[in-house]
């Protein structure tokens, strides 16, 4: 039975959809395909080969890229972990501490960085580090990443927490759990899917950040995005495509993971609600 307002019946629906998909994914597809190209060329296909992947790990630039990748992953894991912890506590305070003064202000302050142009944050962060004479290096990158990852981690966590009725924690306290026990035994496990999503989002955001990183990194310290940018300035070689494709694969895996966790959990909750 066709629904009366089925989107698919709008004229041009198919065309617009295909156009959007093409614009979004064609460049990614080209990069992914040409990373397996057998030749130096980035436009002419000369047969399948893994030479550029081998090049990334063993070629003349491999040491540089390995160091950059290592920095990127260390920073992404540390920044995502710390930002997620802070975001979890912030969400608990905002959503579970009742109505306190400046509650609305707090929510605003947490999400505002999402709307500030990144270049502004980058300049401001740089000025801040200069002002307090903090030597630039891995540490400045990490601190900056923690700061801008917090709102990204906060969003899925607070969305998740809003869906958890306060009655679960009340039931726990009614059953002799202290506030702390109600948090660790009930609220935290129920929030876990949101926390995992927040962590993954923060991880990806940190992993691919370029603008802020470029401003606050010290001389000679590189992350993958800044290293790639540096390499591209000397001309695009297919090894860049191989690195990009690997980064893309990491992102896809992470996002899929997050989606799978969210879906399984959603199913459970919906099932239980339906019964009532």
């Amino acid at each position: 039975m066709a629904k009366p307002y089925d989107l698919r019946h709008y004229p041009g629906f198919l065309g617009v959809t295909l156009l959007c998909l093409l614009i979004l994914y064609a460049p990614l597809g080209v990069v992914a395909v040409y990373s397996f190209n057998g030749s130096q060329s980035i436009t002419i296909w000369e047969g399948f080969s893994l030479r550029w992947y081998v090049d990334v790990f063993t070629g003349p630039e491999s040491a540089k890229f390995k160091q950059a990748a290592w920095n990127s992953f260390i920073i992404a894991i540390a920044a995502a972990t710390i930002a997620t912890s802070i975001a979890t506590l912030a969400a608990t305070a905002v959503l579970r501490a009742g109505k306190f003064r400046m509650r609305t202000l707090s929510i605003g302050l947490i999400s505002l960085p999402l709307m500030v142009p990144e270049i502004v944050t980058a300049v401001a962060t740089l000025i801040f580090f200069n002002a307090i004479a903090f030597e630039r290096g891995l540490m400045t990158i990490l601190l900056a990443h923690i700061a801008f990852c917090i709102p990204f981690a906060y969003m899925p966590i607070s969305a998740r927490m809003q869906g958890i009725e306060a009655s679960y924690e009340q039931a726990a306290m009614d059953l002799y759990a202290t506030r702390r026990q109600a948090f660790t035994r009930i609220l935290l496990p129920l929030m876990m899917p949101g926390i995992v999503s927040g962590f993954i989002l923060a991880f990806i955001i940190s992993l691919d950040d370029f603008i802020i990183t470029n401003f606050v990194k010290g001389a000679g310290v590189e992350t993958l995005p800044t290293a790639i940018f540096g390499a591209v300035k000397q001309g695009i070689k297919p090894n860049i495509m191989a690195i990009s494709t690997m980064l893309l694969a990491v992102s896809i895996v992470m996002v899929t993971l997050s989606w799978l966790i969210g879906r399984k959990d959603q199913k459970n909750l919906i099932q239980q609600r339906k019964k009532k």
Binding site: E165, Q170, A172, A177
Partner: peptide, 27 residues
């Protein structure tokens, strides 16, 4: 609440969704 020897059956039951029936009852 946790120091009162009084328990409640909540209107929406509020069973802990991440615990088995036995774990809920033993909580």
């Amino acid at each position: 609440p946790h120091k009162r020897p009084i328990n409640t059956v909540f209107q929406n039951y509020a069973l802990f969704p991440h615990m088995s029936v036995l774990e809920n009852v033993g909580f």
